[in-house]
Design a protein around this nucleic acid. Structure first.
Length: 474
DNA sequence: TGAAATGTTGGGGCG
DNA sequence: ACGCCCCAACATTTC
């Protein structure tokens, strides 16, 4: 009897999972394992821990329906794998590739060890349309600007239908000893905070696929128009699923191409969404080619920048008490749901960096901790983009005005009213800037500035000028 | 995937 | 009828 080990990592799905597919196809028995590395410096935020817990649970449930079982273990991956190989007659180990430097190093080491023991090691691309080493610019170097990267990408991707693998019909697992999911301690009982997420999200492959269909059926048609409006539920909301591989980007892409070919939807809308998928590829591509992305300014000039990092202001930002309603609404949405609308993410990040002059890494760390879709590549690339320290960044003078952004994208204040209930009764004219409202208006709305809702913690106009001066020094 | 400052234009009020 | 001023509204430049 030939047995393979299938090592799950950021690919917690059965559909289009090439490693799983091939392991099942080539071997009579498989051991399906997830290894949790406790001492990993890789950040696993508290929000994402919740997601991982439920995602593993969902994966196991899906497997049980096929009379298969997920084995969970913790410890050093290499040790766990070698021990399994010793105890069971394992011929081959299968996994899907990852692209962060530590992961790559570890996988290389494991592969070498396996080969020296005459064990086959096979790895696959499951989580990106194109792997980072397969796309280079004309100078044979990696792309540093999104637009040309995007053009090249889309020209390649438009012409083809990606090979995807169906869910294996039969998965014959070996039922060996597994620790309980709860032993991973991903749920922190003390924190009611994590408990709220279930009101908004349901992790797992099944929901991911359902959500994709729902998005395509009812959102994609007018995506371009509505995607920037925070109150509208018009984004795909697939990011948390993508971050743990509960859905396959190739699978998504093929569906989008199919819809394109029907001609039912406007191509502009489909391509706008495809661009988002490619931003994800770009971030991970950058992380591969510049592994320091999460810690180091891509643009070294920023190493000398004197950040303010004022703790008290940082805390007000985290709590959603800056006095700028759009920003506060966003930060509260994040805290409550583990998610924030993309448009608002840009505005709150710009405010933290450019108005408060707080180091982008501090903002990124808060997002890593609180976002269900926390992804080290997307997160650090995006924060560097806003800070202006990244590759193809927002230019230093691009500073979002939190009032104008609010008036532009939440003109009726619906998003603000949802998350900042204390402002609900303010008129549209003042809900974006309560401190400018006449006394009468505040009174009838039941708003007492400094008590029920804060005064702005900083004057945007002045903050903007200060930031421009400091940035100019670079 | 900005916003402010500055420049230009054209209609209307008015002497 | 004309010139002048004001100021939206829009366009361009600058940060």
């Amino acid at each position: 009897m030939s047995t393979a080990l299938l090592w799950f990592r950021n690919d917690l799905r059965l559909h289009d999972n090439p490693a799983l597919y091939h392991a099942c196809k080539n071997h009579e028995k498989v051991i399906l394992i997830y290894i949790f590395e406790e001492n990993k410096k890789n950040i696993l935020g508290t929000a994402k821990s919740w997601w991982l817990h439920h995602s593993l649970n969902a994966l196991n449930k899906n497997l049980l329906k096929k009379n298969a079982k997920l084995i969970i273990n913790k410890g050093n991956s290499l040790d766990v794998i070698l021990e399994l190989i010793q105890n069971y007659n394992i011929e081959a180990v299968y996994w899907n590739r990852r692209y962060d430097i530590d992961g790559i190093k570890q996988d290389k080491k494991i592969k070498a060890q396996l080969l020296s023991g005459n064990i086959t090691a096979r790895s696959f691309n499951a989580n990106f349309l194109i792997e980072p080493w397969d796309i280079l610019n004309n100078q044979n170097s990696f792309f540093k600007v999104f637009t040309p990267f995007f053009k090249k990408y889309i020209s390649i991707c438009n012409t083809k239908n990606f090979d995807t693998r169906s869910t294996p019909k039969v998965i014959n697992t070996i039922d060996i000893e597994s620790i309980k999911l709860s032993e991973l301690n991903l749920l922190i009982d003390k924190l009611d905070w994590q408990n709220k997420f279930k009101n908004y999200w349901q992790p797992g492959e099944k929901m991911a696929l359902k959500q994709l269909d729902n998005f395509i059926d009812s959102k994609l048609e007018f995506y371009k128009l509505n995607r920037d409006i925070p109150f509208e539920d018009y984004t795909s909301k697939l990011s948390p699923y993508l971050s743990l591989g509960e859905i396959s980007p190739k699978f998504i892409w093929n569906k989008l191409q199919d819809i394109k070919s029907t001609g039912d939807y406007n191509h502009i809308d489909i391509e706008k969404y495809q661009a988002q998928i490619i931003w994800r590829e770009f971030s991970n591509y950058l992380l591969y080619h510049f592994p320091e992305l999460p810690n180091k300014n891509f643009n070294e000039k920023f190493n000398n920048f004197r950040w303010n990092n004022e703790q008290s202001k940082l805390n007000l930002w985290k709590k959603g008490l800056t006095g700028y309603p759009l920003i506060d609404a966003g930060m509260r949405e994040l805290w409550e749901t583990g998610y924030m609308h993309n448009r608002v993410r840009m505005v709150v990040a710009s405010f933290l960096i450019k108005d408060l002059l707080i180091d982008w890494r501090i903002g990124a760390a808060w997002f890593e901790e609180t976002l269900l879709d926390a992804d080290i590549a997307n997160n650090s690339a995006s924060w560097q983009w806003v800070a202006g320290s990244g590759v193809d960044s927002a230019p230093y003078f691009r500073i979002f005005n939190p009032i104008l952004q609010s008036e532009k994208f939440d003109s009726k204040g619906l998003y603000i009213r949802k998350w900042c209930k204390e402002l609900d009764k303010l008129d549209n004219k003042f809900i974006h800037k309560p401190w400018q409202a006449p006394k009468e208006e505040l009174k009838q709305a039941g708003v007492v500035l400094g008590e029920t809702y804060p005064f702005p913690i900083i004057e945007h106009d002045k903050a903007r000028k200060r930031a421009l001066e400091l940035y100019k020094l670079l």
